[in-house]
Amino acid sequence: MQRRRWLFSIVAILPVLAIFAYVRVFPIVEILRLSVHKWDILSVAKPFIGLANFRELMGDRLFHEALLNTSIIAFGVLAITVPLSMTLAALIYHRTRSRFAGFYETTVFIPHVVSLVPAAMAWKWIFDAQLGPLNALLSVFGVEPKAWLFDPVLSLVCVIVLCSWQALGYCVLIYLVGFKNLPNSLFEAAKLDGASGLQSFWNISVPMLKPITLYVSVITLVTSFNVYAQVYVLASDAQGAPGRQVRVLVLDMLENSFRNYRIGYAASEAVILLLIVLLLTLVQFRLLRERRSRA
């Protein structure tokens, strides 16, 4: 009986495992393998070159730039999204009696489901130096028009804004679930203890939502480290921006593999990205466990 149950479980799970292995595990293993080989897509020869790719990466100026830009974007998005989404969720949650609660939720969530490229195109237009409404708006307040997508620093800001705008909806949704799980009597007790709304938020909601915050942070960081399409549409040379404005890791990998035909080299970049994401995830899980161990 026990054995038959086991057998059934394995048979039932096998198809899913097979698909998972093929689309997830196999590519990762393949990347690891390729990263220590030299390969130009076309040739049959795939000589093993050890850690030469990684050694080269150490001195690759473009790679460094991409790594720096990606990190700035990822942490920038994190810094904007997490506090903002928590605040928005708090406002929506505590105003649920409002007739517009559903409208607010939808409004924040729409960017998350909207197709990425058209949304990015819309933002590209907003940031446009000559025709963009952002500059038009700023000029009302007497601010000089800026070349948002051309300036190396400002274009990074633009990417961060776009990515945050997209990530926000999902984070707000997760936070809303968190808020709905907080017992209402805690807020009532705090009210009687003399806490203002802001004090309740800071002393009750923020610490109690810590697990949610950790989850949201991990998701946001990992997603942002894989940023590509937003940058490609908004600020890469392919879309007419001069030079290589915002080089990110994924873009660099693509160029190395399909423009420079250096698959092995690109794979080693992917390995670095994998390690970074892995490390960040581990750090955050450690933080989570620290909280639990106090429990």
């Binding site: 017992p183 009597s185 805690l186 009532e188 007790a189 705090a190 009687l192 002393n203 009750i204 610490p207």
Partner: peptide, 12 residues
């Protein structure tokens, strides 16, 4: 001052 049925202690 009020004492709630579920105590409403701040767990953190």
């Amino acid at each position: 001052a009020m004492v709630f049925q579920n105590y409403a202690l701040y767990p953190h």
